[in-house]
Amino acid sequence: MHIVVCIKQVPDSAQIRIHPVTNTIMRQGVPAIINPFDLFSLEEALRIKDKVGARVTVLTMGPPMAETSLRKALSLGADDAVLLTDRKFAGSDTLATSYALTSAIKKLSEEETVDLVFCGKQTVDGDTAQVGPGIATRLGFQQLTYITKIESIDQGAKEIVVHRRSEGGVQVLKTALPCMITMLEGTNTIRFGKMDDMFRAARYGLKTWNKDTTGAEETKVGLKGSPTVVSKVFVPKPRAQKATMVEAESPTAEAQAAAAVDAILGAQPKLADELLARAAAGL
């Protein structure tokens, strides 16, 4: 079994700062991490490897410095790593990104047929959740998003049973390999790396591919290959009005609560009616 896990290197979003004057993102000094959502998928792939045996390849498209994230994934137990990097890929939207990543997965499949592709549910920077479905569609793989649990995987019959989160419940799905899976967050906890994997990761000669290596067409990548155009970026306008402070007759909790109830029911007469109607009905 050959599993490809797509990981994206992202800025640690908790530390994103906006330049107060120019309103631009200040990336300098912001540490880069593996997209947190991708770790749930990486862990699931490694669990399959532990359970039924598999070769796990991690793949990222990004600038040369994204190598750091690949080495991190190797230290956690991935077997192989591919850095897809080319200036021509810059400015790719999700359609172009899924095209470029798919070209690399197809090339990997020539070495050893790929049975499973894992992606994160979404990233914390672009945040679209579109790249996974894009890859599945391009490869003609069954698409399994928001998976909460892989119940069983049968290598011989090439069958997999999963739980998929949907609105209002969980779908239990059975399908055939190959498929593309995105794991829901919180479904597992990423392991600590083993010492020998860490040593191996530091020295590992990972693959560095560009547009020509994978045979990606120039018109389908980068800005040229991207139907969407960002026409403006701006900081949300703060709401014009600040909160009206509730004034109580005395500083006791009771007086404050009474004043707050008055303020709420006064501001929302309709809500007051509904609450009273519900209370009157004894609900």
């Binding site: 359609l95 945040d127 679209t128 959740a129 579109q130 894009g134 698409q143 139907p227 969407t228």
Partner: peptide, 23 residues
């Protein structure tokens, strides 16, 4: 932008090779 909508939109937009703005 629900679990169904995001799952379906990404697949449709890729098949149609058109742009999709998320969320």
């Amino acid at each position: 932008a629900t679990t169904l909508g995001r799952d379906l939109a990404g697949a449709i937009a890729t098949t149609l090779a058109t742009g999709l703005t998320a969320d």
